[in-house]
């Protein structure tokens, strides 16, 4: 494992923990898109189908369990927690799951490297992860009012994607047969979705003003 991959995993982990801790401690999910969180829970569930069958390393298994556990916990908090669910901006978070789910499923059925259930589900999770942030970005754009933790959550997720690209570049040059077009293209698209957010995030940081997205 190279340094970019490890740093990518750690920012990914940090993003999820920031969100979970925010919800748990301030008992509010204001500004958080349930749609995005449900899509991530589905991403992990479909990608790690073989978690108890294929063993890669202790590190991998533990990380997978953390991502599965934290994503489903966040969804549970927003939907079921007595206090937290009242702070959910239901009327603003109107992005339709199906607009993302259906194209990803069709694409996974058509463009995959092997037509087996496991492989199609894995490919579906790659495509879905690329676009799962969209409901969250739309919600941020709509409410414009971004608290620090939600801003940090999106920033850390974007950093994780950028670091994974560096990891792929590194692996491409250091490992033989490391060519993964599907993962790379989906990953690059996913990272580009954050470009606009990053721009405003750095502007607000540079000028030390509160992060606000243009309408």
């Amino acid at each position: 494992m190279n340094i970019f991959r490890l740093a990518g995993d750690m920012t990914h982990l940090a993003s999820v923990l920031v969100l979970l801790l925010k919800i748990h401690t301030i008992k509010s999910c204001s500004g958080v898109s349930l749609k995005t969180q449900e899509l991530y829970a589905l991403v992990f569930a479909t990608r790690y189908l073989d978690i108890f069958v294929t063993y890669v390393s202790f590190y991998n298994t533990v990380m997978k369990l953390i991502f599965l556990g934290s994503s489903f916990s966040i969804v549970w908090y927003i939907r079921r927690h007595r206090v937290v669910r009242r702070s959910y901006d239901k009327d603003q978070d109107t992005f339709r799951h199906l607009f993302l789910l259906l194209p990803c499923l069709v694409l996974a059925l058509v463009i995959n490297e092997k037509f087996t259930f496991k492989e199609v589900m894995w490919t579906f999770s790659i495509y879905l992860e690329a676009v799962a942030i969209l409901p969250q970005l739309v919600l941020l754009q709509r409410t414009r009012n971004i608290d620090n933790l939600t801003g940090q959550y999106v920033f850390l997720l974007g950093a994780y994607r950028a670091l994974y690209i560096l990891n792929w570049i590194y692996r491409y040059f250091t490992e033989e047969h490391y060519v993964h077009w599907i993962t790379w293209i989906a990953g690059i698209i996913q990272t580009l979705l954050y470009a606009d957010f990053f721009y405003y995030y750095f502007q607000s940081w540079k000028n030390s003003v509160k992060l606000e997205l243009p309408a």
Binding site: R5, D9, H12, D50, T54, V56, S57, N60, M63, K64, F67, E113, K114, E119, W122, T123, Y164, N167, H177, Y178, V179, H180, I182, T183
Partner: peptide
């Protein structure tokens, strides 16, 4: 398959 090689990624 490719996904088997890259299964070491999360």
């Amino acid at each position: 398959s490719s996904s088997d090689d890259s299964k070491d990624e999360l």
